[in-house]
Design a protein around this nucleic acid. Structure first.
Lengths: 332, 332
DNA sequence: CTGAAAGCGCTTACAG
DNA sequence: CTGAAAGCGCTTACAG
């Protein structure tokens, strides 16, 4: 049988109230002697408090949810890692939810998370709005990361997608490229739009005509990038491609190889994310690095403040990116 | 305020007992009319049962834990995905735990998971033994996947590491290689040992002397593979390398490039795992594919049977691998 | 078919 | 410093 607080109380000759106070480290709640005695029997009986019972009265579960589009996209595990690390220090557990960018899955998860009384949700979603009916009456603190619905989110940690894309494009222009193709992700995702805007703005600023025909819509995947590239590269004028994420860039590599185009001699490529593997591509990929570690840790800090009803000074944090120059880009 | 079962009961003029039975779909428990009425008020009040309270009495939390060495190694996200998918169908949530292959972290997590009364733990660990004191008195069902401590595990889903490594090595021998280097992972991990054994057995079977000097110990990471390769490739006789996982193989690519060795002309490489990205390496990596989807779904099936006290016909499942031939290997 | 009551294992005013 | 009692929100024998 499981040993409960009653067993500990009986065995040490005190009330459960006292045991509770001692194991919860409420100061000045017991004299040293009883404290010692109780702690000793706790150990002897190998007592572990039932968190379910505890949560039922305290309304805190020390459990956080992280909802991501797909843990299989290498960009997200590094965020998950960072979130989990920060949470761990605080004694929190992490419930992982893959939404596959599907509104139904997301709504379903939100409902479950409410029923399980998670203390907060860290969310990367293009669908869920903060005035979401489900969310509204739940009162669960939410912090958005990376993606958000087209909406004024209250708390979030995002990335300077516009600036990142701008600097990628500017860099390509700077080394002489004029016909720069762009492979974008799904249009309903805000990061797609922001990165596209950055690309367009850079072209504009340097007086290069924006050619809609060399902007291809795709998905954030190798296969998506591959298919879009095959199409895009029929246009022989293109000397460079800005891929909106590294997986798409991988698809560009695959297509280029198949079509006998050498990177960077025949084609320059810039990605976005800097997932660890792109360094080992041949040539190594020039890309826009995202600081995933910061995204995770800041999001956790923010949501903890919300949970504790502390003031959040910066409600929206937007994190810088870095242009990492590697071998996939070359001047002309 | 949160609406509780009492509110629903009052509003529909029945007892909480009846409401409970209706929302739990206990058949023959209420006549159609009251059922309809109660369900209607449930909807009207937007009542959501408190799973904490429910779990406290039923001793089931509908929560499963998945403990992995590191979600950042691309092999694991695909397992996590598969586990989460199977769990989702059953209404279960997933707590993700990264152990970083560290015994202390693992023990710490086990304690927390017990306190949170997870229904089961799916575990990839080289440290935790089933006679673990913590585990023993917890009675939480455990299913091991992928890795296990050097110990006779009772329930687990593993991979034919020996056979996979054997077929990789045999393939290299078959196309003419004799000096086949091997870069292994940490020695305390069982998969490392099994794959090493497969490699050695293949050499033996084809009467090739096993040369300890061309077996390098490393880590399952790009950097690890890179460092080991730099060392290993000082030996100019080596014409092929069996890398014990794809990340190590990536490290081999990096080192080979730096040293001016062309793959596959100067050096053949075989990996292990078949993470999605290796297809886009140049040349695409020949590797031993693991069926991660099966690992996850079978593990979930097994642990659900344990939870439901059903019989598990096959307590240890060992999953086949496939040799995927791509461009990184060439005959001599 | 339905309900009153006990109980799951804790915490927390309240009182002393 | 310590304890009796109520309560968190459910489910489940038991009884009718």
């Amino acid at each position: 049988m499981k040993v409960t607080i009653k067993d500990v109380a009986k065995a040490s000759g005190v009330s459960t109230t006292t045991v509770s106070r001692i194991i919860n480290n409420i100061e000045g709640s017991a004299n040293e002697e009883t404290k010692k005695r109780v702690l000793k029997t706790v150990k002897e009986l190998n007592y572990k408090p039932n968190e379910l019972a505890r949560s039922l009265v305290t309304k805190k579960t020390k459990t956080m949810a992280l909802m991501l589009p797909d843990i299989t996209n290498p960009f997200f595990p590094s965020i998950a890692k960072s979130v989990e690390k920060s949470l761990n220090k605080l004694g929190y557990s992490l419930i992982l939810c893959n939404s596959y960018d599907n509104k139904e899955n997301e709504d379903n998860y939100i409902r479950i998370l409410q029923e399980k009384y998670v203390d907060g949700i860290i969310l990367s979603s293009s669908h869920i709005k903060e005035d979401n009916k489900l969310l509204r009456d739940s009162n669960i603190p939410i912090v958005f990361i990376d993606r958000k619905a087209d909406y004024d989110v209250e708390y979030g940690v995002f990335v300077k997608n516009f600036e990142g894309a701008y600097s990628a494009t500017k860099y390509l222009i700077g080394i002489g490229h004029k016909n720069i193709g762009c492979i974008i992700g799904p249009k309903e995702i805000n990061t797609t739009k922001e990165r596209l805007d950055g690309y367009i703005k850079a072209l504009d600023n340097f007086h290069i005509r924006v050619n809609q025909e060399i902007i291809k819509c795709s998905e954030y995947s190798i296969e998506g990038g591959y298919i879009a590239s095959k199409e895009l590269l029929k246009n022989k004028d293109i000397t460079a491609i800005f891929a909106q994420d590294d997986l798409i860039a991988c698809g560009v590599y695959k297509a280029a190889k198949e079509m006998g185009l050498k990177i960077p001699n025949d084609l320059s490529v810039v990605g976005f994310d800097d997932i660890s593997i792109v360094e080992v591509l041949d040539p190594p990929l020039t890309t826009i690095k995202q600081h995933t570690e910061d995204i995770g840790s800041i999001a956790v800090e923010m949501i903890m403040n919300l949970i504790d009803n502390k003031e959040v000074k910066e409600k929206i944090v937007t994190i810088d990116t870095d242009l990492i120059k590697r071998g996939s880009t070359k001047g002309i």
